[in-house]
Design a protein around this nucleic acid. Structure first.
Lengths: 260, 260
DNA sequence: CGGGTGTTTGAATGGCGTCAAAGATTGTGG
DNA sequence: CCACAATCTTTGACGCCATTCAAACACCCG
């Protein structure tokens, strides 16, 4: 029941924050979200959450912990397709997507809340909850967008760029949900999982990480990843935009609590 | 105006074939498809068909020629995200997808037909055209599914497996639209484009192709790719199912014309 | 026939994987 | 609270897969 570490946005507030970052929400929309409370189910680290044997398609919100979509190829190799963070949705898209047919596995302990009720409400009263609907659609779009980014990484970038780009993505996403303080955030991915995500061996991930540390770009200790030079990392990863997110938040202050 | 080579299914019949392979179609659904005729627009090889500067989202059917979705990364490298064959749809999915926001480029000369009228018809009379709707949804799903396959290739397979798996995918897709005869089909991808799709250099693509030829698995001459040993290729590519497609076709014989 | 594009080949370099083993860290039970 | 196991990280040595550079060869088209 104890959350992992610096949980700043609790439960459903995460979703409100995510949506508000993408599109303005009306007062009654925020009300719908914030009044929503459901018990959250917990999956232990390593557990399979959804997949072939578990084909339930109820939309769910990740309330805490990290998970991943993955695929095991016939040769036994594991390929992580995308990382799911708190505030992300599973099966959140109204229509069927290939992304939602894939196995989902908990990386750390993961708490998940069923939000099918919210979606039903939104569908039944589209005139009241247009903002939420738009936001959900944009979240799904961003989800797929990251997918494309990752494909480009795998296909056309050498290891240091791959890792740099991936780390920046995680950093930006954690910022979006206020999980970053002092440029640091909890990063429960082992180097093996990083390798599985990026198509690299554990050993090589380790070497490149050491190199990035030596270049004063990042620092990783005890599961805490510190970004020491965002601009430098972005330059390395061939990314133009270092800070493209979390601007809309000031516009719709859904959450009152700030970082400690 | 002259199609490229062995065009067996003409125009809209391609779409009927694709849909019928996925789900049974009622008589009136086939009728709707087959009576549809629109002039097709032609894009020359190398032309950008859709993309950032060209954000039109009318659903279109590729009637002849090959195209690709691609992304150019900041370092200048080109990554093909997926290949589009005759019978494939562009923006065919009712809702917004990230896949539909990327650049589409013609590989060979490509003829494209606007089918927004069909989709409108289907949406307005869902009770009559449920099969088409279902088929379209499944086509979009298969599209995304191939995407995941490709990601696994890029992330966790060495060059020979990558090429083998990719070639099998193309082979199966060409079979589905009757573009294969005697295990051969027109393959307009240059080795450079293969490299761009698979994250390999031209030189290495060439070497691996030579190796696959030496092993009597494939044969490539003058733009014609011949699959000499499907099972062997599939074994190499770590694929379980050599022939999983085109079974449903016998169920709904949409097209009368067979290969010559 | 000549230029452009695509294919093929060689040689040299290096990125990255594999094998192996030694630290470091975390968690668990005594 | 310590000891131990298990997991994760780190490092070295070695070798292969793949890229790069460079140049020759084949093909298509005007």
């Amino acid at each position: 029941m104890v959350p992992e570490a610096p949980i700043m946005l609790a439960q459903i507030q995460l979703l409100a924050r995510r949506l508000a970052a993408l599109t303005p929400l009306a007062r009654e929309e925020r009300a719908l979200l914030l009044k929503w409370q459901r018990p959250s189910r917990c999956y232990m680290a390593g557990a399979q959450m959804f997949g072939a044997q578990n084909p339930q398609h109820h939309p769910k919100l990740i309330v805490s912990g990290w998970a991943c979509r993955e695929r095991i190829s016939a040769n036994g190799k594991r390929q992580l397709l995308s990382i799911l963070l708190p505030g992300d949705l599973i099966h959140g898209c109204a229509n069927r997507r290939a992304l939602d047919e894939v196995e989902v596995v908990a990386i750390s302990n993961v708490h998940v809340m069923n939000i099918s009720g919210i979606l039903r409400e939104v569908e039944e009263h589209p005139e009241h909850y247009a903002g939420i609907a738009r936001g959900l659609s944009l979240m799904s779009l961003a989800d797929e967008e990251r997918f494309l980014d990752h494909m480009v990484r795998l296909g056309s970038q050498p290891a240091p760029q791959r890792i740099a780009g991936f780390v920046i993505e995680l950093y930006q996403r954690c910022r979006l949900i206020d999980y970053v303080s002092a440029c640091s955030f909890v990063m429960p991915l082992t180097q093996e999982l990083l390798g599985n995500a990026l198509g690299l061996s554990v050993v090589h991930v380790n070497r490149v990480m050491r190199q990035l540390k030596a270049e004063q770009l990042i620092d990783l200790h005890g599961g805490i990843l510190k970004i020491m030079d965002v601009a430098g990392l972005a330059r390395l990863a061939d990314i133009d935009m270092p800070e493209p997110v979390a601007l809309r938040t000031a516009n719709g202050p859904v959450c009152d609590r700030a970082a400690g």
